[in-house]
Nucleic acid binder design. Structure first.
Lengths: 363, 363
DNA sequence: TTGTAAGCGTTATCAT
DNA sequence: ATGATAACGCTTACAA
């Protein structure tokens, strides 16, 4: 069943049917009703490829998860983000194509790029992580493919949080508790957000007049296992073990917690733990993981909104949206039961965050 | 840059360029070389929509994650499966479209269905979970959309494991340890695999002559929280607490472990724990989570292979592929350090599983 | 081996 | 408000 047949049956031209399907106002109520009736009766649905070819729009977006981070697809961060992206796509009647390159395989990464981006499979693409030195962002711009970065980027529209300041707050909170030997497990230095959070950690120490000590920084790769291994190193440090640790992500913080427990030590009494992300999965840890809460699904939703705007108006201003964050102290930082029950419940917190995006636009 | 221009520049016809692009043998080496040169020089990439319209193939697959389970997208099961599906798609130069309906919203589920399936956005679809009473599988068949089920289905090609027998083995192992009060936390009864695993639990008890006790079965919904809550109920059971628990998934088993620890009890001494899935994320639990290992990425890969076969030959036999599983005893079931170190390392195990699919075909 | 030409099912332009 | 008609960029018989 195609446009032509519907037109014939309804006794109108293809153009009229097309207008009805696309919600064009320039159709008489009479004709519209008749056409809609036939469409429903025969269950007509426009053919996606034909539509795309003629309109030069695919109504599909791409979501790129770079190969550099695909090994941490096990981090619940990504599922949460995907959820937000998918929801927003559905609401806009757009499809979502997953672009995940294999890890160390530039050849197939290139094949995927050519097929999807250059082949115009999609109308725009969401880049899910700023990876240092990743040529992808520059290439899509050169190929005229609208793109939005979740993270930092100089020329692309971006959705992000203020990683550095949020991390600074988190570490400042540990300092307020009286900890002085504060370790940090940063994510890989190829990922911009990891570096920003590390900078925030350093800023908090500086502000408190605590000298930086590189032996307190043990890098991880955002996996739980890396957090576990990093913490083991930190506990065996010759200068003595740290009294607190700030994980570059909740997932690494949970790994650290495990190493602490395995060493027969207690959280927070021997070593306090602070995470970053606020993943709902970790709500039920004991003691509750203190963390810096961000709304990850909202990051995804906002990226879709920005991208759709960009597609509709490629010459509009390059927006940079910053979403709010909030310190969420639970048991693991040393805040007692009091703080835990006082803490804003997760749901409220998240809806609050969603209401508070900070926008800034530059032409 | 399009076919026409390439043809003009190379001094051949559009057909010849098309043949070169599509690897048709009926082209002289001479012409092929010249065309390829021009293609490379100008960076030509065929237009996806035009191709689809003419060839009636989109080179895109869909992956449907039903709304009934989308709330457990936080379960690492799904990311692992997606990973396998994506890898296989990439290797075949196919794109992957994510179909995730919102949870209780039949209207938008229907919109998505119409747009994607009826609009012929994809060449075939992978159904990721058998949900009891889900009309989706029947509809795609009626709409002539090739489909493969990950799970059980009477008429569709399927990829699955023998959930019932695997669960039986897992519980039999607990019985071998001497436990008699074995509880079970099944997944929701709307999901076929959850019921099959529960049946396996019951079978193991029957075989050992242990009477079924419904107060030992406390359902969950595959989330960690539900496992935690179910275990709390089980611990407060008037007839006394169970001496072992079989979780319907690793994630629920981990939740149960947490409840046990919170109650001041020890795993496995007070309550032994057995999971199901073998998610790599839980490898670093302490004590290690004993589980029934399956290869989830391989489930996804195999589904893609089956679907591609189906698309190429819709009238071929309806294959049902069963992938192998293996009991993976670690600390939480009561197997000591010996068993833990004896246990086949994860990587080996997985590659072993991948080699051992059991195939059965029925016309 | 190569070229010609007829679609594929829409949208979009331009009359009317 | 409606309809003819020309794209859109490719594949695919069919002819040569």
């Amino acid at each position: 069943m195609n446009l032509e047949e519907i037109a014939r049956i309804a006794g109108v031209s293809r153009s009229t049917v097309s207008r009805v399907v696309n919600g064009d106002k320039r159709v008489s109520d009479d004709a519209r009703a008749r056409v809609n009736e036939i469409i429903t009766e025969y269950g007509y649905q426009p053919h996606a490829a034909a539509r795309s070819l003629a309109s030069r729009r695919t109504r599909m977006l791409g979501l790129r998860i770079p190969g550099e981070v695909s090994f941490i697809f096990s981090d619940p961060y990504f599922p949460e983000m995907v959820q937000g992206v998918v929801d927003a796509c559905n609401e806009a009647d757009y499809g979502l194509m997953l672009m995940m390159e294999p890890e160390n395989d530039p050849i197939s990464a290139e094949r995927i790029y050519q097929r999807v981006i250059r082949g115009r499979h999609i109308d725009g693409v969401i880049l899910s992580t700023s990876v240092i030195g990743d040529p992808f962002a520059g290439r899509v711009a050169a190929d005229g493919m609208p793109a939005v970065m979740i993270g930092r980027h100089p020329t692309l529209p971006t959705v992000d949080i203020d990683n550095a300041d949020a991390a600074r707050q988190a570490v400042a909170h540990l300092i307020d508790h009286g900890y002085r030997q504060i370790a940090h497990i940063p994510g890989p230095c190829t990922i911009a957000a990891a570096n920003e959070r590390k900078a925030g950690y350093e800023a908090a120490l500086s502000e408190a007049g605590i000298p930086l000590d590189s032996s307190l920084v043990e890098p991880g790769d955002f996996t739980e296992l890396s957090g576990y291994l990093a913490m083991r190193h930190l506990l065996e440090r010759p200068e003595g073990r740290p009294d607190a640790v700030f994980g570059g992500s909740d997932t690494m913080a949970v790994g650290a917690t495990r190493a602490i427990a395995e060493a027969g030590l207690s959280v927070p009494d021997d070593v306090a733990v602070m995470g970053f992300d606020g993943l709902s999965v970790h709500t039920r840890n004991y003691p509750g993981l203190s963390t810096l809460q961000q709304s990850i699904p909202n990051l995804g939703r906002t990226a879709v909104e920005l991208l759709l705007k960009r597609i509709a108006n490629p010459d509009g201003p390059t927006e940079h949206v910053y979403l709010g964050t909030a310190l969420s102290p639970r048991g693991s930082c040393g805040c007692g039961e009091a703080a835990r029950t006082d803490a804003t419940p997760l749901e409220e917190l998240v809806s609050h965050l969603e209401d508070a995006p900070v926008m800034s636009a530059c032409a």
